[in-house]
Amino acid sequence: KEWNEKELQKLHCAFASLPKHKPGFWSEVAAAVGSRSPEECQRKYMENP
């Protein structure tokens, strides 16, 4: 399903605030978004950083 504005906001906010070198980075991003898997978050971010 399409990403909504709130999900995208959470994605970018989590990406900006979490340490990128940490193992499980995308899992933490997904936990912050709440409604998406780590894979979905990574794919979406890579599509549209």
Rank of each mutant, 00 (worst) to 15 (best):
L11R: 01
E2Q: 14
A14W: 01
A31D: 09
A31I: 11
E7Y: 00
K22G: 11
E28S: 08
E5F: 08
M46E: 14
A32P: 01
A16F: 07
N4M: 03
F15P: 02
V33L: 05
C41Y: 00
S17G: 11
K10A: 11
H12G: 09
E2F: 07
E7S: 02
G24V: 07
E5P: 12
E28N: 11
A16S: 11
P23W: 05
L18R: 07
E5D: 10
P23A: 14
R43F: 14
W3A: 03
W3G: 03
S37C: 05
H12W: 04
F15I: 13
E39C: 07
F15M: 13
S37K: 05
A32S: 10
S37R: 08
F15T: 15
A32Y: 08
S37H: 07
S17T: 07
R36S: 03
C13D: 15
C13N: 13
P38D: 07
V33G: 02
A32R: 11
V29T: 02
M46W: 09
K10L: 09
N48A: 14
A31W: 04
Q9L: 08
W26K: 04
P49K: 02
M46T: 15
A14T: 09
P38I: 10
W3T: 05
Q9W: 04
E28V: 05
Y45G: 06
R43I: 09
V29A: 03
A32F: 08
G34E: 10
W3V: 02
S17V: 06
L18A: 11
S17D: 15
W3P: 03
Q9E: 15
L18P: 03
E40V: 00
W3Y: 02
Q9C: 05
W26S: 04
E2H: 07
G24L: 11
E39V: 09
P49A: 11
A14L: 03
C13E: 15
P38H: 05
E7L: 00
E7Q: 02
L18C: 11
K22M: 12
F15A: 14
K6A: 15
S37Y: 03
Q9Y: 03
K44D: 01
E40R: 00
K22L: 08
P23C: 11
N4V: 03
E28M: 07
P23D: 11
K1D: 06
E28L: 09
A14I: 14
G34K: 09
M46Q: 13
S37V: 02
S27H: 11
K44F: 08
P38Y: 03
E39H: 10
R36Y: 07
P49F: 10
A16H: 01
W26V: 04
G24F: 03
A31L: 13
Q9I: 07
S37Q: 09
N4S: 09
A14S: 11
R36P: 02
F25E: 04
R36T: 03
E39D: 13
C41M: 01
N4H: 02
N48K: 12
F25T: 05
P38S: 13
R43V: 13
R43D: 10
K20N: 11
E40C: 02
A31P: 01
A30V: 00
Q42N: 13
K20L: 10
G34V: 05
L18T: 13
R43P: 01
H12N: 08
E40Q: 10
H21V: 14
K1T: 11
E5R: 08
S17P: 02
K1P: 00
P19V: 09
K10G: 07
S35E: 11
A30Y: 00
S27E: 15
G24I: 06
K20E: 13
R36Q: 11
W3D: 03
V29W: 00
Q42E: 15
A16D: 03
A16V: 07
E28H: 12
C13A: 15
H21F: 08
F25I: 09
N4Y: 02
C13H: 14
W26D: 02
S27I: 08
P49V: 04
P49W: 04
E47M: 08
E39Q: 09
P23V: 11
Q9K: 14
K20Q: 15
S35F: 05
C41K: 01
C13V: 14
P23R: 09
E47V: 03
P49T: 14
S17H: 12
V33E: 01
P38F: 04
N48F: 07
V29C: 07
E39W: 05
K22D: 11
F25S: 04
E5K: 13
C13G: 15
H12M: 07
P38K: 12
H21M: 15
A16Y: 03
V33K: 00
S35V: 05
Q9H: 13
Q9R: 10
A30H: 01
E5S: 07
A14H: 03
G24M: 11
K20I: 09
K44L: 07
C41D: 01
P38Q: 10
E28R: 12
S35M: 05
S35P: 03
P19D: 15
S35R: 11
E5T: 15
K1H: 00
E28A: 07
Q42T: 05
Y45D: 04
N4C: 02
L11H: 00
F25A: 05
P23T: 09
F15Q: 14
L11S: 00
W3N: 02
S35N: 12
E39S: 11
K6D: 14
W26A: 04
S35D: 14
R36H: 08
A32N: 12
H21C: 13
K22W: 03
K22R: 11
Q42Y: 07
K44Y: 13
Y45T: 15
N48I: 12
S35G: 14
F15H: 15
P23L: 10
H21K: 13
P49S: 10
E47L: 05
S27P: 14
M46D: 10
F15Y: 15
V33R: 01
S17E: 10
S37T: 09
F15L: 14
K44I: 08
K20T: 10
R43T: 12
Y45P: 03
K44R: 12
K10I: 10
G34Y: 00
Y45Q: 12
F15E: 11
K44A: 09
V29Y: 00
Q9D: 13
A14C: 06
E47H: 06
M46S: 14
M46H: 12
S37A: 04
Y45V: 13
K6M: 05
R43A: 13
L11V: 01
P49E: 15
W26F: 01
A32G: 09
S27N: 15
P49N: 08
H12C: 06
H21A: 12
E2N: 15
E47A: 10
A16W: 08
P38N: 04
V33T: 04
F15S: 14
E5W: 06
Y45L: 12
F25N: 07
E47I: 04
A14F: 04
C41V: 04
A30C: 04
H12L: 10
H12I: 07
K10S: 10
K44E: 14
E47Y: 06
R43Q: 07
V33N: 02
C41N: 01
E2P: 05
F15N: 05
K1W: 04
F25G: 05
E39P: 04
K10R: 09
F25L: 09
H12R: 08
Q9M: 06
E7F: 00
N48V: 12
G34P: 02
Q42F: 04
G24C: 10
V29K: 02
G24E: 12
S35H: 11
P49L: 04
S17Y: 06
C13S: 15
L11A: 01
R43E: 14
K1C: 07
F25Q: 04
E2R: 06
S37P: 04
G34Q: 06
E47P: 04
E2I: 12
K44H: 08
E5Q: 15
G24H: 09
L18S: 12
C41S: 01
P19E: 14
E40H: 02
K44G: 03
A31Y: 09
L18G: 10
K22A: 09
R36V: 09
K6I: 13
A31T: 09
W26I: 03
Q42D: 02
A31K: 15
K10H: 15
E40A: 05
G34C: 04
W26R: 02
S35T: 13
G24A: 09
M46P: 02
K44M: 12
G24D: 15
A31H: 13
G24N: 15
C41E: 01
A30T: 01
E7M: 01
P19I: 02
E40L: 00
A32L: 13
A32K: 13
K10F: 05
S35Y: 07
A31G: 13
E2K: 10
E40G: 00
P19C: 08
Q42R: 14
N48E: 09
Q42W: 09
G24P: 03
K22H: 14
W26T: 03
P38M: 15
E28C: 08
N48L: 14
A16T: 09
P23Y: 06
P49H: 08
P23K: 09
V33A: 03
P19L: 03
P23I: 08
N48S: 11
W3F: 09
S17M: 06
M46G: 14
S17R: 13
A32D: 06
A31F: 10
P49I: 09
Q42P: 00
K1S: 10
A30W: 00
E2A: 07
K1M: 10
W3I: 02
S17W: 01
E47F: 06
E5L: 08
W3M: 01
E39K: 06
S35K: 12
Q42K: 05
N4A: 06
K1E: 06
L11N: 01
P23S: 13
E28F: 06
E2L: 05
P49Q: 15
E7P: 00
S37E: 07
E39L: 06
N4I: 04
N48Q: 10
A14D: 02
E2G: 11
W26L: 03
N4W: 00
P19G: 13
K20P: 11
A16L: 09
E5N: 08
P38G: 10
E2V: 09
A14Y: 06
G34A: 12
C41W: 00
K6Q: 05
N4E: 05
K6T: 12
C41F: 01
Q9P: 00
V29N: 01
W26E: 04
Q42M: 07
P38A: 14
S27R: 12
E47G: 08
M46R: 13
E28K: 15
S27A: 13
A30P: 01
R36G: 03
K10M: 08
E40N: 02
C41H: 01
Q9V: 09
W26G: 04
E7K: 00
K1R: 10
L8S: 10
